[in-house]
Design a binder for these strands. Sequence first.
DNA 1: GTCAGTGCAAACTTTTTGCAACTAC
DNA 2: GTAGTTGCAAAAAGTTTGCACTGAC
Lengths: 163, 163
Amino acid sequence: MSEKAFSQKSVEQRLRDFLLANGLRQTKERFAILKAVYDMDSTFTIEELQRALAEMRFRVSTATLYNTTQLLVQANLLIRHPFSSQTTLFERIADEKPRNYQICNNCHRITRIKSKELMDGINSYRPRRFDISHRVLYVYGICPKCEAAMRKKLKQLQNNIQQ
Amino acid sequence: MSEKAFSQKSVEQRLRDFLLANGLRQTKERFAILKAVYDMDSTFTIEELQRALAEMRFRVSTATLYNTTQLLVQANLLIRHPFSSQTTLFERIADEKPRNYQICNNCHRITRIKSKELMDGINSYRPRRFDISHRVLYVYGICPKCEAAMRKKLKQLQNNIQQ
DNA sequence: GTCAGTGCAAACTTTTTGCAACTAC
DNA sequence: GTAGTTGCAAAAAGTTTGCACTGAC
């Protein structure tokens, strides 16, 4: 599915189309998981997704969750994130929202970048033979908090040497 | 370490400085691993790094590899990638090289994007209170190969329905 | 009725941890 | 000498797999 077609259909319809196009079945699990995914408002893990479904009184096995999230990623309804070390983080694909993140190398805190200029800069890239679903930018560095902490530490060390 | 200071020092010197600034020891393991990392020319896993070190006749434990890669990431000498599901992929930080990747949602093939315009668009973002080490852009979508395959599949399906 | 999809549990892979031994400072 | 580091092995965490059962088509 191309980027432009995004907001024109409901996510349920998009899933239906995807399943049909690929000869896959329309199971209640898949739609329940889709709903749960779109009820989450930030990034989430498989485990959190399972808890959310449990609160909806919908039990699904872990295996199905793994299968289905993979499927939703393929259907461009879900995005799979890098940040964390062990666990995979997911996030629903919510149309126009810019997906630009700032990540601290030290404390690993993640913040969204809201810069129209940056967004435009990224969106200006339009390859000919590659049907883009979405773009994600990660800006790594040291956040102000950690920077201050490091500076302080270094200063202490220098004082120790001088003594 | 700020972006500008990048190419001015050798990687060994940068590691030395980082260790000093943080009161950490200068062990032969850390420098051997750094060398191995900078001898790799593409992305690599922990396991591949261990093999590379073995070829250098340098044995290190897995635990040390995990510790040290984490340390190198903090020192802005190494970057930790998202792509793969299970295994973490690493890549050395090699200065000016653009880190813009195109990833197929279907076959997961990764290609580097070489677009000066895009690079400039991304680099124009300069936050005030965040010391950037590097930027990574991931452009997700469907590659031409998979697009063709999907189109074919859909066509076949439609033919089946018509029969 | 058939076969894709699901649940369950076991297996597997990757990463982390605890502790004794080592070594940079 | 004394911590910070390392190696080893065991444990933990996350993900995948095999198989029997279920339900979408």
